[in-house]
Nucleic acid binder design. Structure first.
Lengths: 136, 136
DNA sequence: CTTAGTGTCATAGACACATATGACAGTAAG
DNA sequence: CTTACTGTCATATGTGTCTATGACACTAAG
């Protein structure tokens, strides 16, 4: 479980932690029931205040991604709270739009853009498979 | 010149404006010496405070991307040569990857994702055409 | 029991972001 | 000149982020 922070992006640290743990959960790097790094050690490793990590974990729990047990630790939930399709669709559209706008700003043609999207789907899929295989 | 804001990302609005104008400048969509949207109309269009846009433009000027002339407007600086394809490709890949990961996290199949990407390309293209038509 | 590790709660302060609003100065067209 | 646009500066307010710190409760191991 590796978390990489970018202090220059302007994106809040606790949200970066939330997103990366959600990605790790969805991609299989973290398995259901598995323990997450404890708040204080993780805060020390990332060199942020323990409240920042606690806030990230609280957010993750409110989203149903993890479960925290007092005195024991935080664990990945068994099933990621299934959001309704329409909600998930809107969340995804936000990300897609940013990529489409970026493609337009950088003067990529639609065909080039779609080809690149396909390529990245392949690349990231391979990455996930490597992670699954390396966990045995 | 289309700017797309994401208010839920956690990334400061003024930085989103900075990044997107820098992309447009780097790719050649904005040409050296060309006028940028005025602060107040752009703020109104994006539905943010004029100070937010002013802050973005001030940041761009401090980075040498644009020049602002009191009473006239803001203009793209002269020395901004278009970036090479490989650089632009990497910038685009960063955005694409975020969308691909999000699609996976939200449990969209590859086919659903690609269909949605196509849909958004259409939608945003129409939006741009409407903007161009409304400008004449 | 004690000890150490865990999550949780509360308080306070510093700073950044975004807002609302007013005012001033430069530019251009009438 | 006036008018309308432009960028700029200043002030104030509310919210969010991050930090620092102390305290408490739960769990497990000794």
């Amino acid at each position: 479980m590796l978390i990489q922070l970018n202090f220059k992006s302007g994106k809040p640290v606790y949200l970066q932690v939330v997103d990366q743990i959600k990605s790790a959960a969805a991609s299989g790097v973290l398995k259901p029931g598995e323990a997450l790094p404890s708040i204080r050690p993780l805060a020390e490793e990332l060199r942020v205040n323990r409240n920042t990590i606690a806030k990230a974990y609280a957010e993750l729990e409110s989203q149903g991604v993890i479960e925290s047990r007092h005195g024991k630790g935080c664990f990945l939930a068994d099933n990621h709270s299934p959001l309704k399709k329409e909600i998930r669709r809107k969340m995804l559209i936000e990300e897609i739009d940013q990529a489409v706008v970026q493609a337009h700003n950088l003067q990529f043609s639609r065909e080039e853009f779609l080809a690149l999207v396909n390529e990245r789907c392949d690349t990231l899929e391979e990455k996930r498979n490597q992670h699954r295989g390396g966990q045995s």
